[in-house]
Design a protein around this nucleic acid. Structure first.
Lengths: 175, 175
DNA sequence: TATTGTTATACTCTATAACTATA
DNA sequence: TATAGTTATAGAGTATAACAATA
């Protein structure tokens, strides 16, 4: 392959590669920003899920996010110890833990909103408002077509769930 | 936050979030595809880098990919054992290992090209050719603006290099 | 002494499986 | 017996630091 790459081979010139390239970049940039709130991206995602649908069980949350229940326990633990989430036992079925945002948690959600807005603005600073909306519309159509759950990051979902014959854990490498 | 999310808060509705969401999805889909070639995404990225500029030292490759030289050693090891890469000692400076594609490696590169084309087509199947080009142009502008190296995935680059005061390794979490 | 490459070690994150309690 | 949640263990992937060879 010669250095004049942009031929029909597109090992790295196509839209899909640009998507993964920019997506990883955006994820890293977002991680840097919410680190200022002492949060990791998975924690922010969980807070968002709880804010969107409060009072659900950990099983329900795990299923929506597409992650193993055991992983959710640790996430909830950390955020509960910091006073951002609360577990409330369901009197009817005492096995269930309804997960709620605390008052402090709601305040942090507001911070996350601000950070997300700033982040969005910085990442797309090359585009004017009309172009941003154009991009957003195109991406939304692709996301729908590919069956992505709105607001839920695929990083929670384990691959082997979708592909029974998956060879190993190597699939999920950073790429 | 009420379930009527699409207000100005955009914790997950903006273009940047769609970008990370789709980018992660595309990366996972690509990982599944090249797994059929018994390759991981980092391996494919290295092969691509070598194909694009053959005969460079491991230091040069590490710098271009933005990864630690120690990580490159393991990657080259694996691909050399499979007969896809060759290390050739530089007679002038016997410290340097010039990395080249073997004949089998070039054949695999052709396979990677095919897989990438299929992958690109599948990910963007919701868009017609004109829309794909429109999307590609918008993404390319954003990528340039954000300083991304064409053809190089940011997953190689460690975060702390760009951000000296980074808090810990949690930044790089999947999100 | 500086640089290329290598090896050894430790750490983070996540997944898998075994366990407890409620039903 | 089945389900929600928890704990314990192991594995993959990467980074950091010490080391050997060549300049």
């Amino acid at each position: 392959m010669s250095p004049s790459e942009a031929d029909s081979a597109l090992p790295a010139g196509g839209g899909a590669f640009l998507l993964t390239q920019l997506g990883t970049h955006a994820a890293q940039a977002f991680a840097e920003r919410i680190a200022e709130l002492d949060l990791t991206p998975p924690q922010a995602g969980l807070l968002r899920a709880v804010a969107f649908g409060p009072g659900r069980s950990q099983q329900a949350l795990a299923q929506q996010l597409g992650t193993a229940p055991t992983r959710l326990v640790a996430l909830v633990d950390g955020l509960e110890q910091r006073g951002l989430l609360e577990r409330r036992r369901n009197p009817g079925d005492r096995r269930l833990h309804a997960v709620h945002l605390s008052v402090a948690g709601e305040a942090v959600m507001a911070d996350i909103g601000r950070v997300s807005r700033d982040h969005d603005d910085a990442v797309l600073s090359a585009l004017d408002p009309a172009e941003r909306e154009q991009l957003r519309a195109l991406l939304a159509r692709v996301a729908t077509d590919r069956g992505l759950t709105p607001g839920v990051h695929p990083g929670y979902r384990t691959l082997s769930a979708a592909d029974p014959g998956s060879p190993s854990r190597e699939d999920r490498a950073t790429y």
